[in-house]
Structures are given as structure tokens and as C-alpha cells.
Amino acid sequence: MVFLLLIFLIVIHRGYSQKENVRYSPPHICALKNSSVIINCNFTYPPERSIMKTFWTKTKNRNTDNEFPDLSEDPEYSQRLQYLGDKQKNCTMRLSHVTQKDEHKYYFRFITDKANVKWLGEPGVTLTVLDLQVESPERVTEGDSVRLTCKSSCALTDRATFIWYRNSQPLTERRDRNNILLLQSVRREDAGRYSCALQEHTYISPEVHLNVVYPPRNVSVFMNGSGEIVEGDSVTLICSSDSNPPAEISWIKGGTTVGSGRIYNISKIRSDHREEYKCKSRNEHGEKYSEAVTLNIMCELVSSVTITLNYFFYMIVSDICLF
């Protein structure tokens, strides 16, 4: 008799010890922007009750008439929320195309048949939505090494594979499980806009600009016109230089500095302009001179000179420059 009573009490205890409860795993989820996230959930309830309705909610404002609305009926969620569970134990749901506006604490809720009991699964699960961000130095000198890091405060899995982009084009050779892009011996061609993404995800991080600085190179002088210069003409010399940051340009005639700026104008050419000219390109990382150019100034001839000597007249034609 005592044994039967003990069994009866155990059955009663088990029946009433199974109370309403909801378990979330994990309680905090960090999702990448535009990705899909699955919130794992299980629930229990007394076996003598029947589940009438199950749904997910996010609002916790007891001052409203509808304090815990069904998200599947919310236009902002109806096309993105998918209930993957059942009405027995599983309450897992998927939320797709998450954005910053989805950052909330979410709760699973169920309604039973007993006195229309509505149970809210505390403490809920917190969803955080974060962007990927590229960390990079603002500038790097040509020849140095630079490290770019694709960062997110989301706890990404070890299986995450990173993809890097330069100027919106994928660096196909850089698909790595390491979130660091290392550029050895940086070239000026490495300058550009960098961003990162996770493989199998459409979201790409905002771009950051990598600025590669270097001293002047390819310095040369160009002269307008045909190259044949007559006294009194005007000549324009142009200095071409490749550098970052832009270089300061100065002009040297012989060994003397005679001007500055990319363009050097000489008006009313004279004989003393027949010299070698070159330009110097200089920035904070170095300087370089162009090859020298010489102005080829043509003579204007005197062709009629009359000389009187001993009553004889001679007409002498000579070539005499005016200078």
C-alpha cells in the first residue's frame, strides 16, 4: 500500500513539476547585416494543457493594449520571419535580411487552453546587428608593409572565410580564413578603396581609402610649338611629374632658379635665352630633376648692305644675326 502511494505521488509530482518554461540557445546572438539568423528555442508546459497558439514577439510595453504582438502579423517581419518549430517542444525561428532596426530582445510566447493562459518566455534572446569594418592606416609609404583588418564585434565562427575588394573588384587571390590582408612592399598601384565581406554573404563593408605616398618620378620637360624659335617669339615649357603627394616644381636655367610652377612662360625670346632649362620636382619624400632642354633660337638675317669704297659701289650680301 505504501509502495502504491509512493508511485502515485511520483506521478503527481512529475505531472505538476513540468511547468511553463522557454530556453534560448544562445541568449545573445550577433548577426551580420543583411544575413539570416536562426534563434534556437525549446519550451515546456504541463502535459494536461494544450497549446492553442505559438508566436514570436519583441515588444515589452505593458502600457499598450497589444503588449506583445505577433511578429508574423507585423509588415516589417511577415516576409522575413519563418517559424521553424512545432507546437510541442521546438520554437526555433529564422529571421532573414536583418538590419540595424532589428536590434531588439525577442521572446517566444505561447497560449494554452486553460483559462487562455498566455506564457512569455523570459528572459528572451538579444539580437545585435553589426557591420563589418575595415581598419587601415590613412597613408603608407611605397615599399613599406601594410596590414588591413576586417573587423566585427560579432563572434564569427572559425569557418568564416573573408573576401577582399579593391575599387569594388574582388581580389580573387585573397580568400582567407584570416581577417587580415597583408600587403608586402606596397606599390603605388596598391592604392585604392578597400572593403571586405564574408563568403556566402551579400553584405560588403564600407570602403576605406589606402593612400600610398612616394617621391617624384618620371620627371620631364615638354615645349609647345614646333621647336623652331625666332627672336621675339614666346615659348611655354611644361614640367610633367608623377608623385604623391603632388610635388612643388621649380625651373632652373643653367645653374640658376628662374621660376616655379608646372608651366614656365618665356615671352619675347632674346639671345640670352639660349640656355639649358630643366625642372625640379620635390615633395616631402624626395626630389628629382628632369633632363635638360636647350632652346634652339633661329637668327633673323640682314641681306642688303651697301658699302662705298674709293668711288666704287659694291653690293655685299651677308648673313648677320640681329643679336
Rank of each mutant, 00 (worst) to 15 (best):
F3Y: 14
L4A: 15
F8D: 07
F8G: 12
I10K: 05
K19G: 09
K19R: 14
S25F: 02
A31P: 01
A31S: 10
A31M: 03
N34D: 13
S35Q: 07
I38R: 08
N42S: 15
E48H: 15
I51P: 02
M52G: 07
K53W: 10
T54E: 04
K58H: 07
K60I: 05
N61G: 02
D65F: 08
L71A: 01
E73R: 09
D74L: 00
Q82R: 12
K87Y: 15
Q88L: 12
N90P: 01
L95V: 05
S96Q: 13
N116G: 11
N116I: 08
V117H: 13
V117S: 10
G121N: 04
V125K: 00
V125H: 04
T128Q: 11
D131K: 02
L132H: 03
Q133M: 06
L148Y: 06
A155V: 11
A155C: 09
T157C: 09
A160K: 07
W164V: 00
W164S: 01
R166T: 05
R166P: 06
N167T: 10
L171Q: 04
R175V: 00
R177V: 08
I180D: 05
L182T: 11
S185W: 04
R187F: 06
D190R: 06
D190P: 04
A191T: 05
A191W: 03
R193Y: 13
Y194E: 06
Q199N: 03
H201C: 00
Y203A: 00
S205N: 00
N218P: 00
F222E: 08
N224A: 01
E228L: 14
V230C: 12
E231R: 15
E231G: 14
E231L: 15
D233L: 10
S234C: 05
V235F: 11
T236A: 10
C239N: 04
C239V: 07
S240P: 00
S250G: 05
I252R: 08
I252Q: 12
G259S: 08
S260I: 07
G261D: 10
H273A: 12
Y277M: 07
K280Q: 12
S281Q: 03
R282V: 08
E284Q: 12
Y289H: 14
S290R: 05
E291C: 05
A292R: 13
T294S: 15
T294D: 09
I297R: 08
L301V: 14
V302S: 08
N310F: 09
Y314K: 09
Y314V: 12
I316T: 09
D319N: 14
C321P: 11
